[in-house]
Design a binder for these strands. Sequence first.
DNA 1: ACCCCCGGGTGACGCTTGTCACATGCGCAC
DNA 2: GTGCGCATGTGACAAGCGTCACCCGGGGGT
Lengths: 200, 200
Amino acid sequence: MIRVLLAEDQAMVRGALSALLNLEPDIEVLGSAADGESAWRELQRLKPDVLVTDIEMPGLTGLEIAQRVRRHELPVKVVIVTTFARPGFLRRALDAGVGGYLLKDAPAENLADALRTVHRGGRAIDPQLALEAWSDADPLNDRERQVLRLAGEGHSASDIGTQLNLSHGTVRNYLSEAIGKLGAANRIEAYRLARQKGWL
Amino acid sequence: MIRVLLAEDQAMVRGALSALLNLEPDIEVLGSAADGESAWRELQRLKPDVLVTDIEMPGLTGLEIAQRVRRHELPVKVVIVTTFARPGFLRRALDAGVGGYLLKDAPAENLADALRTVHRGGRAIDPQLALEAWSDADPLNDRERQVLRLAGEGHSASDIGTQLNLSHGTVRNYLSEAIGKLGAANRIEAYRLARQKGWL
DNA sequence: ACCCCCGGGTGACGCTTGTCACATGCGCAC
DNA sequence: GTGCGCATGTGACAAGCGTCACCCGGGGGT
């Protein structure tokens, strides 16, 4: 019997996934959480075999939970189920030692199979995504990432400078670097590109 | 017996919702579709009582399907189930005469209840969203919307001018207007604001 | 015929962006 | 210490952006 904890912020999807998993005779959903913190608490309380979690959640993200699990060496497997086919996310998930990474685009039957595989100690990674993840790495450094993120939210260079204690000139230098590295025409395009790769 | 067709692009969510609805004794899921066009075809083939659809799908969006249903006077109720709490979307959905508009944030049990209500001829609209929808209307006109959308994708003014057969000066005028109307500081912020309201 | 509104355009203004070449200063290897 | 790399600044330039005041021409009222 595979004992599962479910973390997913959208209540309707959470309920539906729970119903789906409970149809499987060898799977039992112990409980579910709507945000990162409560998922983390329930994880320690219920001690499930497998945690099935989304990435984007209020509080802790699924990736952060996976990192904590690894740091505390909890005896639980983590399976990420997410909308985002972003190589950067998968990369970070693998670094955090997750057992599975599925897309919500994948057929529903895959989920139960993936849980079984992971429970046996195997790995269930979305195949075409796995390729991309190793193909191109994030070219941005920390400063460029920060600056680009702020810029993408509509802040001006001087604005960003104030927030990060940098001169507006420096901010523009970083932005220019980032734009160059990404082969974009301006900050907006650069932001979009970085975001869709999961480099944020 | 309520006969339901399900349209939702994420396979896993689609499967899960289907499992959820099939647990209800008075509900039967006839079939499901992964994109707008096939949903429209299945709608005519299966003639369900209720169509449960997401908004963001490849091809036709859920809103466009709802509009078509109204135009063709098909005897099917439409229930929108979406992630987006955007007043503009609800507004357009109501204009298209949908029977229900639920958020994926709502508890899973609501879905079956909403289907029953709508099947009886009632309406099931997310309450707090309903308030917002009537509070602030989209201040943008068509040109401003077009221009803002392109600008948000990273195109420059001259770029946009070429695409729409306008002078770059005119494009900047529209952009300026839009920025003003939305109380934003620049095109990026304006784009974000408009987007999150569902005015796109 | 008159006026006025509306979509589109022009030109000018000052500010912001994107780019680049060149400084400064700090820490680390040797 | 000398040298190198890295992070941060500076100053200049051209291009793009945001704003505004104003122009033009075609409909529609009245």
